[in-house]
Computed example of a mutant assay.
Amino acid sequence: MANTPQAKKRIRRNARRAEVNGNRIGRIRTFVKKVESALASGDKATASSALAAVQPELQRGVAKGVLHKNTASRKFSRLTKAVAALS
Protein backbone atom coordinates (compact mmCIF):
# COMPACT_ATOMS: atom_id res chain seq x y z
CA MET A 1 0.00 0.00 0.00
CA ALA A 2 1.18 3.52 -0.75
CA ASN A 3 2.66 5.37 2.21
CA THR A 4 3.64 8.80 0.91
CA PRO A 5 1.11 11.48 -0.03
CA GLN A 6 2.58 11.63 -3.53
CA ALA A 7 2.18 7.88 -4.02
CA LYS A 8 -1.46 8.11 -2.85
CA LYS A 9 -2.05 10.97 -5.27
CA ARG A 10 -0.52 8.98 -8.14
CA ILE A 11 -2.89 6.08 -7.41
CA ARG A 12 -5.89 8.44 -7.60
CA ARG A 13 -4.58 10.08 -10.76
CA ASN A 14 -3.80 6.77 -12.46
CA ALA A 15 -7.34 5.54 -11.78
CA ARG A 16 -8.83 8.67 -13.35
CA ARG A 17 -6.54 8.48 -16.38
CA ALA A 18 -7.28 4.78 -16.87
CA GLU A 19 -11.00 5.56 -17.01
CA VAL A 20 -10.56 8.42 -19.49
CA ASN A 21 -8.19 6.42 -21.68
CA GLY A 22 -10.51 3.42 -21.61
CA ASN A 23 -13.34 5.60 -22.86
CA ARG A 24 -11.13 6.94 -25.64
CA ILE A 25 -10.16 3.44 -26.75
CA GLY A 26 -13.80 2.35 -26.63
CA ARG A 27 -14.80 5.29 -28.82
CA ILE A 28 -12.15 4.35 -31.38
CA ARG A 29 -13.30 0.72 -31.35
CA THR A 30 -16.88 1.85 -32.00
CA PHE A 31 -15.83 3.82 -35.08
CA VAL A 32 -13.78 0.87 -36.37
CA LYS A 33 -16.72 -1.50 -35.83
CA LYS A 34 -18.96 0.80 -37.91
CA VAL A 35 -16.55 0.41 -40.84
CA GLU A 36 -16.31 -3.36 -40.33
CA SER A 37 -20.09 -3.79 -40.19
CA ALA A 38 -20.49 -1.74 -43.38
CA LEU A 39 -17.85 -3.96 -45.01
CA ALA A 40 -19.67 -7.09 -43.88
CA SER A 41 -22.93 -5.83 -45.38
CA GLY A 42 -21.13 -4.88 -48.60
CA ASP A 43 -22.29 -1.24 -48.54
CA LYS A 44 -19.44 0.74 -50.10
CA ALA A 45 -20.98 4.19 -49.58
CA THR A 46 -21.55 3.62 -45.87
CA ALA A 47 -18.12 2.03 -45.50
CA SER A 48 -16.46 5.02 -47.19
CA SER A 49 -18.19 7.55 -44.97
CA ALA A 50 -17.42 5.48 -41.86
CA LEU A 51 -13.79 5.23 -42.98
CA ALA A 52 -13.62 9.01 -43.31
CA ALA A 53 -14.91 9.29 -39.73
CA VAL A 54 -12.49 6.71 -38.32
CA GLN A 55 -9.30 8.38 -39.54
CA PRO A 56 -9.46 11.48 -37.29
CA GLU A 57 -10.46 9.29 -34.34
CA LEU A 58 -7.37 7.12 -34.81
CA GLN A 59 -5.17 10.21 -35.09
CA ARG A 60 -6.73 11.67 -31.95
CA GLY A 61 -5.92 8.43 -30.14
CA VAL A 62 -2.30 8.77 -31.23
CA ALA A 63 -2.18 12.42 -30.13
CA LYS A 64 -3.65 11.58 -26.73
CA GLY A 65 -1.22 8.71 -26.25
CA VAL A 66 -3.68 5.81 -26.09
CA LEU A 67 -2.56 4.28 -29.41
CA HIS A 68 0.87 3.88 -30.94
CA LYS A 69 1.18 5.68 -34.27
CA ASN A 70 2.10 2.49 -36.12
CA THR A 71 -0.94 0.72 -34.68
CA ALA A 72 -3.23 3.49 -35.90
CA SER A 73 -1.55 3.50 -39.32
CA ARG A 74 -1.90 -0.28 -39.61
CA LYS A 75 -5.58 -0.22 -38.67
CA PHE A 76 -6.37 2.60 -41.09
CA SER A 77 -4.37 0.97 -43.88
CA ARG A 78 -6.15 -2.37 -43.52
CA LEU A 79 -9.58 -0.72 -43.36
CA THR A 80 -8.79 1.40 -46.44
CA LYS A 81 -7.64 -1.68 -48.32
CA ALA A 82 -10.81 -3.55 -47.42
CA VAL A 83 -13.06 -0.64 -48.48
CA ALA A 84 -11.19 -0.34 -51.79
CA ALA A 85 -11.65 -4.07 -52.40
CA LEU A 86 -15.45 -3.69 -52.26
CA SER A 87 -15.70 -2.13 -55.71
Rank of each mutant, 00 (worst) to 15 (best):
M1W: 08
M1A: 09
N3H: 15
A7C: 01
K9E: 15
I11H: 03
I11F: 06
I11W: 02
R12P: 00
R12F: 09
R13P: 00
A15C: 00
R17G: 03
A18Y: 11
A18M: 12
E19H: 09
V20R: 05
V20K: 04
V20L: 13
G22R: 05
G22F: 05
N23F: 00
N23Y: 10
I25W: 11
I25F: 09
R27E: 14
R29Q: 13
T30M: 02
T30H: 08
F31E: 14
V32D: 06
K33E: 14
K34D: 10
V35S: 04
V35L: 12
E36M: 10
E36C: 07
A38K: 03
L39W: 04
L39P: 01
A40D: 07
S41M: 03
D43A: 11
K44H: 05
A45I: 09
A47I: 04
A50K: 05
L51A: 03
L51W: 01
L51H: 06
A52Y: 09
A53W: 01
A53F: 04
L58K: 05
R60T: 15
G61V: 12
V62Q: 12
K64M: 13
K64N: 12
G65E: 01
V66I: 10
L67H: 00
L67W: 06
H68Y: 12
H68Q: 15
N70T: 02
A72Y: 00
S73W: 12
S73I: 06
R74C: 08
R74V: 13
R74P: 03
K75E: 14
F76P: 03
S77E: 15
K81R: 12
K81C: 01
A82P: 06
V83Q: 06
A85G: 09
L86W: 08
S87G: 14
S87M: 11
